[in-house]
Simulated scan of single mutants.
Amino acid sequence: MPTSFQQRIQARAVAGLWRLLSHASPRQLWTLSQSLTAILQPFLKRECAVTRLNLEVVYPDMPEDDQAMLARDSLRHSTATMLELGFAWQGNEDKVAASIIEVHGERLLEEARQSGQGAIVLAPHFGNWEVLNFWLSRNFDFTAMYEPPKLEPLDPIIRAGRERCGASLVPTNSRGVAALLKALKRGQAVGILPDQEPGWGSGVFAPFFGRPAYTATLLPKLVARTNARVVTGVAQRLPGRGYALHFLAADERVYSEDEATSCAGVNASVEGAIALEPAQYQWEYKRFSKTPEEECGDPNFRRHRLYSSRNMKLARRHR
């Protein structure tokens, strides 16, 4: 579909904003995110409602006031992540590298790579995953899947930002999976976003904070074909200072030959990363939109949907 004039204008505006913000420091970007969040919150009704619903599910015993505070903090961090994209993709490389002031668990990643069977980094939507990509591609031969943005004119800008330190981006299709397999067989590192809901037929239901979540079976397939080692990686924001990278041992179930068990291990690994600081996870994503009832063709599956119109309305009242 040809790019419309409106899309080109939108893309130019976004690209211009990224260029402008690329010159800011993490401290300045965090300060700006606090002010901007207060301005944007009344307009982010869907994001706020989804966040509240997700938090009610994953932290059912948390007092309502604490859930509300966590929801507000989560929105602040999500705003900060958006503002930091220009910094991560276009900022001076030495300055971005200097903003990573702590690295924890690097030994786990090194051991995984030295096994000779490749290393798979599970990188959930926590903190600033673009900073994690920057560090990984700067320090290792690194391959990651990439899905082009809806605003097509932004594609070359985002690709250039993610690949500028040597990362190799591959499409989210069979060709991309083949490229990941080749990289692993060369003993290299690959990155996977483990908390995106795949299309029907590409996943299984596995518990995520006790609720069934449709989870991609890509990781079990890669492990079965390569015996690669798995590590969870995140870039935790240290507000006003920079970032701390954490590499955590994946749940041992990820190595199971049973895909459902392996996916349960993937979700448990994501839970372990979230525990570092729950406010830095992207709770506004509809992680539970698919249901087992829908998969099996139950005509009443809608009553089991978390993000029903009724639940969204109730969540908005409690913002």
Rank of each mutant, 00 (worst) to 15 (best):
S174A: 05
T31Q: 05
W18G: 13
K185G: 00
V270R: 09
R303G: 12
A160G: 00
N133L: 13
L180Q: 00
N54K: 04
P278N: 12
A112H: 02
E152A: 15
E284I: 04
R162F: 01
R175E: 12
V223H: 06
W30T: 01
K182F: 10
W89M: 07
P220F: 00
A38M: 12
A228L: 05
A249Q: 11
Q90H: 15
I100V: 14
Q28R: 14
L53C: 02
K290W: 00
R310M: 11
Q117H: 14
K286V: 02
G127Q: 08
R319F: 07
Y281Q: 00
V96R: 09
L132W: 04
I192M: 10
D258A: 09
Q188T: 10
M82Y: 11
P278H: 11
A112Q: 02
W18D: 11
L306A: 03
N267W: 08
N227E: 14
V50P: 02
A260G: 12
V131K: 13
A11S: 04
D155L: 05
F87Y: 12
V204N: 05
S168F: 01
E56S: 13
N227T: 12
Q10V: 13
L306I: 13
D258C: 07
L169H: 01
V58K: 04
E102W: 04
N173F: 03
A49Q: 01
R229L: 08
A13V: 15
P2Q: 02
F140H: 15
L17I: 14
